[in-house]
Computed example of a mutant assay.
Amino acid sequence: MPTSRKPLRPAAPAGVEAQALATRVLAMQAEAGLTIAMRMPILMKGALGDSSGQREATKAVVEKVSAVVESSFAASCAATMFWWGLALNPLAQIDLSEAAAKVANSTLEPFARRTRANAARLTGRRR
């Protein structure tokens, strides 16, 4: 049986980006669950008039709005860098899945940073 003489392709860089993205999402899920579990009693006190609970609710809303703004800016920058790279070097080999994973990673970064900080703050852990 004849064998192929084609050299084996190295692992695609997109695989590394995708793995980093999957790892980030899993870590965020765990930290978000922890944050929700730790925040619920504080928010319940706030609903009953406790000022610290009301501050926590305000902080959560402001934090989410700022994360959305920062995330959309990061996604726009990452996508723009991809398109500028393509426009300036049209003959370059482009891996669309790697570019998409980079955009997704940069989009999740503001949320990941805040989720990690909240989990640490609410559980009393120090980073």
Rank of each mutant, 00 (worst) to 15 (best):
R9K: 13
R9C: 03
R9V: 02
P10N: 08
P10S: 03
P10H: 06
P10Y: 05
A11R: 12
A11C: 13
A11S: 11
A11F: 14
P13Q: 08
P13R: 08
P13Y: 07
P13S: 05
A14S: 00
A14R: 00
G15H: 06
V16T: 07
V16M: 12
V16G: 10
E17A: 11
E17M: 14
E17N: 12
A18P: 00
A18L: 08
Q19G: 02
L21K: 03
L21W: 10
L21F: 09
A22W: 08
A22G: 06
T23P: 05
T23I: 05
T23E: 15
R24T: 09
R24L: 04
R24W: 06
R24D: 09
V25N: 13
V25K: 11
V25D: 14
L26K: 03
L26D: 09
A27H: 10
M28N: 07
M28Y: 10
Q29T: 11
Q29F: 05
Q29A: 04
A30P: 01
A30D: 11
A30V: 01
A32M: 07
A32K: 11
A32Y: 13
G33Q: 08
G33D: 14
G33Y: 14
L34C: 06
L34Q: 05
L34W: 11
L34P: 00
I36K: 15
I36L: 13
A37W: 04
A37T: 03
A37R: 02
A37D: 14
M38K: 09
M38L: 03
R39F: 04
R39N: 08
M40D: 15
P41K: 00
I42M: 02
L43C: 02
L43R: 01
L43Y: 15
L43A: 02
M44R: 02
M44S: 01
K45M: 02
K45E: 13
G46V: 00
A47K: 13
A47H: 13
L48D: 10
L48Q: 08
L48K: 07
D50N: 10
S51R: 02
S51Q: 13
S52C: 00
S52M: 00
G53H: 12
G53V: 03
G53Q: 10
G53W: 10
G53T: 08
Q54C: 03
R55A: 07
R55T: 07
R55E: 12
R55P: 04
R55I: 05
E56K: 03
A57H: 00
A57G: 11
A57K: 01
T58V: 10
K59E: 15
V61C: 00
V61N: 02
V62Y: 15
V62T: 11
V62P: 05
E63C: 01
E63T: 06
V65E: 14
V65Q: 06
S66Y: 13
S66E: 14
S66H: 13
S66G: 15
A67E: 09
A67K: 04
A67R: 02
A67S: 06
V68C: 04
V69S: 13
E70Y: 11
S71V: 03
S71E: 13
S71C: 04
S71A: 13
S71P: 06
S72E: 14
S72F: 12
S72C: 10
S72K: 09
S72Y: 15
S72G: 13
F73G: 12
A74M: 11
A74L: 08
A74C: 07
